[in-house]
Nucleic acid binder design. Structure first.
Length: 494
DNA sequence: ATCGGCTCGCGCAA
DNA sequence: TGCGCGAAGCCGAT
């Protein structure tokens, strides 16, 4: 899976790199530091490439710190287990690379404080990941102000670097056209599939004892996922670990299975929850256990694609532009267009991407007009969270989220539309969606999840005939959904 | 089973 | 300035 095979050339990272604090590199430093906070993977990682390039140029060792706080919103056994699974697989990958890898799991709130600062004091430069959502933008800005050394954030999120667009997009078709105009050039700033190939770096060995004793690496028990190893952490134990396990090699296995078994029939199959034909890669993409370029590369290899197959006219057309089979066309629209539209939205609306005010005016107005409509079903946050409604199909989607930590894409739309219908106000519906999906779904707290919440409230969409409660916002019904898509087995899952 | 109409605003062609 | 068209819908007519 070599990215060059598909027309990528490497090393042109400019559009992905952002100086956070405009400070200088430190002379007489001991190493280069990669503060890995979003792209938690050892391959196809633009920030890692940047850090390796610095270490080579400065003739210094590379230290990779992968931390996990215990006090971020919705921290739970579920997310900890998944992230720590990833740490163990990263440990194995980095054990055979010329780097010092430090997985750190914070044992109590605040105990991790000062670790990045202490390492940065010895670093020539600090590289980190540029993720436009959740608490990460603020954490990176704060760190930039605090550090005396240069901090660079690298955007390894998608095929299209966020800096390529200077504005938000109100509809997928506009973003799709923009992507079609820029795809050829952005494929030149792709990350390496084999970042350590032909790279010789100085090595450091273990960190100084002063640092190791105050911030010891994650224990073997934690990394191996031993029973009870999360019990002492002050996180939400009610949200338990799930069958889906984290890490780059599990992500890669899932990718291979999806491409070989489901990709060719994805265009039709992805609609039907019973078919289980979707990739289920979103948790891995969210935590950075797999990169968009690796997924793209595997899909295109399967399709025998090359740059020559791309359409010539960037019209925003949904099908046929990539020049691959219908299944791959439909999947790429998800992976690249819809996923990266979400990153664009968060990046260009940093202040309000999680607020009701970011849905278009026509939708805000029509929902306001229907605030007084009779709502035959009103459920509390707790009833919804426990899947206790009168609607078996909706309950099934919510149960899937509780049990599997994930939910079928098509069902998420119905899930959100019904929460809008069953809530006293759209603002409260949004708050409920955020609270439930961010808490239970492994891929919550991601630009794509926020795009989904906002879509149910009318964002990226157009008006439809006026109805109770929804106004002219598009509605969905469980009865129609059950008629259109196969849900027989889905309903049986308890 | 299939089809048209519903409704707003954006971006492009003219 | 006008025109075409849009994440996955719903409803009623044929």
């Amino acid at each position: 899976m070599n990215s060059e095979e598909h027309g990528f050339t490497q090393g042109e990272q400019g559009p992905r790199v952002r100086s956070v604090n405009h400070r200088e590199l430190r002379a007489n430093a001991d190493f280069v530091l990669y503060w890995m906070i979003a792209a938690r993977r050892p391959f196809f990682n633009s920030a890692l490439d940047r850090a390796i390039a610095y270490a080579g140029k400065l003739n210094l060792p590379l230290v990779i710190l992968e931390p996990l706080r215990c006090d971020y919103p919705w921290a739970s056994d579920r997310f900890h287990r998944f992230v720590i699974d990833g740490m163990e697989e990263n440990r194995q990958a980095f054990a055979v690379a010329p780097v010092t890898y430090c997985p750190y799991v914070e044992p109590a709130p605040g105990t991790g404080r000062g670790l990045v600062d202490a390492l940065a004091e010895r670093a020539a430069v600090v590289i980190t990941d540029d993720f436009p959502c959740f608490f990460l933008p603020q954490a990176v800005e704060q760190m930039g102000r605090r550090l005396a050394v240069a901090l660079e954030a690298v955007d390894g999120n998608g095929i299209l670097p966020m800096s390529t667009a200077d504005r938000p997009f109100s509809a997928a078709v506009h973003f799709r056209r923009h992507l079609q105009q820029h795809l050829r050039e952005v494929l030149r700033c792709a990350p390496s599939a084999t970042p350590f190939k032909d790279v010789r770096l100085k090595t450091l060995g273990p960190l100084p004892k002063s640092i190791r004793s105050r911030w010891p690496s994650a224990s073997t028990a934690l990394l191996r996922g031993e029973q009870g190893s999360l019990d002492s952490l002050p996180i939400d134990h009610e949200v338990s670990a799930v069958a889906m396990r984290g890490g780059w090699s599990r992500a890669r296995r899932r990718l291979r299975a999806f491409v070989s078994r489901h990709l060719s029939r994805y265009a039709e199959g992805h609609k039907h929850p019973d078919d289980r034909a979707t990739s289920r890669l979103s948790p891995y993409l969210h935590f950075g256990h797999i990169g968009a370029h690796e997924v793209f590369s595997a899909v295109m290899k399967h399709e025998g694609w090359s740059l020559r197959k791309l359409g010539l006219k960037a019209t925003g057309q949904r099908e046929g532009w990539w020049g691959v089979g219908a299944g791959a066309e439909a999947f790429l629209d998800q992976l690249v267009v819809w996923r990266e539209l979400g990153f664009n939205t968060c990046a260009k609306n940093a202040d309000n991407y999680e607020n009701f005010e970011s849905v278009p005016n026509w939708a805000q107005q029509t929902l306001a007009k229907h605030l007084g409509d009779l709502r035959p079903h009103l459920y509390s946050h707790a009833q919804l969270e426990r899947a206790e409604t009168h609607d078996p199909l909706w309950n099934a989607a919510q149960r899937e989220m509780l049990r599997a930590g994930w939910c079928h894409n098509y069902m998420r739309m119905l899930w959100g539309k019904k929460i809008l219908e069953w809530s006293p106000s759209p603002q409260q519906a949004l708050a409920t969606m955020i609270a439930i999906m961010n808490r239970w779904s492994l891929d919550g707290r991601d630009p794509s999840s926020y795009s989904g919440y906002m879509w149910t409230l009318g964002k990226y969409d157009r008006p439809w005939p006026e109805r109770e409660v929804f106004g002219t916002v598009r509605s969905m019904s469980s009865a129609n959904t059950a008629k259109k898509v196969r849900v027989k087995n889905y309903l049986r899952v308890r």
